[in-house]
Design a protein around this nucleic acid. Sequence first.
DNA 1: CAGGCGTGGCA
DNA 2: TTGCCAAGCCT
Length: 257
Amino acid sequence: MVSEFMLQQTPVARVLEPWRQWVARWPEPAALADAPVSEAIRAWGRLGYPRRAVRLHAAAVAITERHGGVVPTELAALLALPGVGSYTAAAVLSFAHRQRHVVLDTNVRRVLARTLDGRAHPDPAPTAAERARAAALLPQQPAEAAEWAASSMELGALVCTARNPDCPRCPVQDLCRWRALGHPAWDGPPRRGQAWHGTDRQCRGALLASLRDTEEPLARETLVAGWPDPAQAARALAGLLADGLAEETEGRVGLPG
DNA sequence: CAGGCGTGGCA
DNA sequence: TTGCCAAGCCT
């Protein structure tokens, strides 16, 4: 479950070392639940999307309080945990328990878009129809379904990649519609990249980096001083406070206890 | 439901 | 250099 949180929108190579450190330090949910959120945020380091650290900590608390410290093995119970959506819940149950679930991540979605639709990329967000199609493809036996989930994901991650797919090495190249059509370019809506320079998001990252690096809370003015646009810094800080990534007491801002 | 939310590597 | 893109989730 820790690895799945870390892997949300983050490359495997970057997750490996933080994951090792994390599970060595907090080998079970109760251990993480006992730690202050600030330590979870620091241990998250520069993985990105630090709200995941807050949510993982909150999930550990919920598991400790509601499930006796054991990660639940039912889909609904997992989905009720903060930071656990349809992908993460299905991934945990499929990979850890070999249950039968549709594990529909961006890799699997790309494999299906190419092989079945002949399109270079899936739509921006998964649709109900897409989920239904994936469900129809899932083997009936749980063990086979789990194997299917893992292998279809790996196919997308290692062979049927977004940028340079290795079609000659693909085990399903002969049934791939995209390959049969000659690898047509993406003709859907323009794929939106995420702005970064000068955005609130960049500002949040900078402010949080400052908070991670100090033990003692900083005066609000000190924290905000390093950012050229005061209004933007104020807005970003408000967001961090709202997200539980920062805490303000008597004009001083630090990581939440 | 469209948009917000980090970070760094690579073409 | 700039622009993708990487095992999503939440509001």
